[in-house]
């Protein structure tokens, strides 16, 4: 395909158009991804998450610059939520990254969640693959750490960084949020604010309670992203985690698991669409609903019948 050839020859326009094809599910999207797949698997993927206002975009901007200093090219997928009311979105991550626009070694793509059930992680994952095939060394996925689909996205990364800031409530908030468990490293941003030491201790204590961290203890870095302070140490920590994953053989496991999850999601998606089209959106199904409502039949055997037909 022409667009794939152009993308592999470093056409930024082709990369952008290919991501659009995937995002909007254009007819050629599957063909693009099929042709691109052999060229993927080379980039190192970093997921960044945390609460709104933690400074993820600013930090991403600074990390990208630090990686550029170290000679790496950087792709960024910045995800912001779609309004459930209008279906529109304001994608504001790029505002922190505008001075990256002059650098050919960086490509930033904004994506809206569009309320898609699980579909987002697949689309973001495809955007990562396209940037990977284009030749980006490092790819950063940045998203607000609320909601399952957002967490799913960052979980697909090789290294996941959780960004927190002081003054967001007591330690119970941190525990119930459920995003702290997924961090391979922690960054306390806005670390010139009051409460930084306390937050540091709380994260330490939480890590003590987590038995999963055998072999790798998530480091806690402090940054003031707006001033560019502490950024080198964060990149050093990411690189240390990468080295750990490679040496321990875990990078292989993570990537195997990622493929498994991706294919599972693709299968689920395909089956869901099939059921929606062939079962749910039919007159026959509407008739069944009426019968269930009047209690002529019950849903359990209806489901059995349908599954029997679909999975024949």
């Amino acid at each position: 395909m022409e667009i794939v050839d152009k993308l592999l020859n470093h056409s930024r326009l082709a990369l952008s158009k290919a991501i659009t094809a995937v995002e909007n599910e254009y007819d050629d999207a599957v063909k693009i991804m099929t042709e691109i797949y052999p060229h993927t698997g080379n980039a190192y993927v970093i997921g960044i998450t945390g609460p709104p206002g933690a400074g993820k975009s600013t930090l991403t901007d600074k990390l990208a610059k630090e990686y550029r200093k170290r000679g790496k090219t950087v792709g960024i997928v910045a995800i912001d939520p779609t309004s459930p009311y209008s279906g529109g979105a304001i994608l504001g991550d790029r505002i922190r990254m505008m001075d990256l626009m002059a650098d050919e070694g960086i490509f930033v793509r904004s994506m809206a969640t569009r309320g898609s059930l699980g579909g987002l992680s697949q689309k973001a994952g495809d955007a990562v693959k396209l940037m990977d095939a284009y030749g980006m060394d490092v790819i950063i996925i940045e998203t607000v750490g609320v909601g399952q689909s957002e967490v799913d996205i960052v979980k697909t990364a090789d290294t996941t960084m959780v960004v927190v800031i002081p003054g967001m409530g007591d330690d119970i908030q941190a525990i119930k949020a459920g995003i702290l468990e997924i961090g391979d490293l922690f960054t306390i941003n806005k670390a010139d604010r009051e409460g930084t030491d306390k937050l540091n201790i709380e994260i330490e204590m939480m890590l003590e309670l987590n038995p999963e961290h055998v072999g790798w203890r998530p480091p806690i870095n402090r940054t003031i992203a707006s001033k560019g302070e502490g950024i080198e140490a964060v990149v050093d920590s990411i690189e240390a985690h990468k080295a750990y994953l490679i040496d321990s053989g875990k990078l292989n496991d993570i990537r195997k698991k990622r493929i498994k999850n991706e294919v599972e999601a693709m299968l689920n998606d395909r089956v869901n669409r099939y059921i929606d089209k062939e079962v749910i959106q039919t007159q026959e199904f509407d008739d069944l609903v009426v019968k269930m409502q009047s209690r002529e039949i019950e849903p359990y055997s209806v489901v059995d019948d349908i599954v029997g037909k679909v999975l024949k």
């Binding site: 779609t82 309004s83 009311y85 209008s86 279906g87 529109g88 979105a89 304001i90 994608l91 790029r94 904004s110 809206a112």
Partner: peptide
């Protein structure tokens, strides 16, 4: 945004 567009 309120008109349903994605605004960067």
């Amino acid at each position: 945004r309120d008109a349903g567009f994605e605004v960067i």
